[in-house]
Simulated scan of single mutants.
Amino acid sequence: METTRHFTATTYIVNDGATALHAHERLGIRLPPGGHVDRDELPHEAALREVREETGLDAELVAEDPGIEGPQGHSLPQPAHLMLHDINVHEDGSVGHQHIDHCYFARVDGREIDPDGHDERGADAWDWYAPADLRAADLDADVVELGIEAIEAVGEA
């Protein structure tokens, strides 16, 4: 069976020592803003677009840009992590669909969630988590680890 892979971008947004997570309706877990990279869109552009659509907030990526320039190319903001997520796992263990996720960290100036995209979850689906809240919540381990790392990275930037 062939595995289909799509590129995605996820952004842990941080304000005043906390990161925002929403209740993902289909997956039944809490996640930061993110989604598929559209055709002709770069991963860091998708990351910022998804934040804007899902939260209504304007984000500033905290991402290293090596600043390498060439005659026909230049470097892009580096994601904090590249993750491979199995999305559609069959009973026999084969994987039908995966996401190659560019995971970014970003700062936002406020916490007022007001989604700007169509068909987005409302503000009541979102909560802000400080590191202690992340550790105490019933969240996937990677979400806790990446959320804490994002809070620390934004605090140091």
Rank of each mutant, 00 (worst) to 15 (best):
Q72I: 07
H97E: 15
D92L: 10
G96Q: 12
E25G: 14
R121A: 02
G70V: 11
P32V: 03
L146C: 02
T8M: 06
A23M: 03
N15R: 07
A23F: 02
E2S: 13
A23V: 03
L48I: 13
D133F: 05
A130W: 06
E50G: 00
V108D: 07
A130R: 14
L134V: 09
D119Y: 14
E60H: 08
R5F: 09
E156W: 03
G34P: 02
H85K: 11
L84V: 07
E41S: 01
G93V: 04
D109T: 14
G35T: 04
R30I: 01
A125F: 02
L61N: 01
G67Y: 01
E60R: 10
I13D: 07
E145D: 08
D142L: 10
D16Q: 15
L76E: 09
F7M: 08
L27E: 09
H97N: 09
D116Q: 13
P33Y: 05
D133T: 11
A153T: 14
Y129L: 09
L42E: 15
E53S: 12
T8P: 00
L31M: 11
A47L: 01
C103H: 00
R30K: 10
T8Q: 08
D92M: 09
G70N: 10
E149P: 00
M1S: 12
E156I: 04
I68K: 06
D116R: 12
R121T: 00
R39E: 15
H99R: 12
A136F: 05
V144Q: 02
G147N: 06
P79V: 00
Y12G: 04
Y129R: 06
T19W: 02
A153R: 12
D38P: 02
D92S: 08
G35M: 06
M83R: 07
E112C: 05
L82H: 11
D40K: 06
E69L: 11
L84E: 11
E91D: 11
E60N: 09
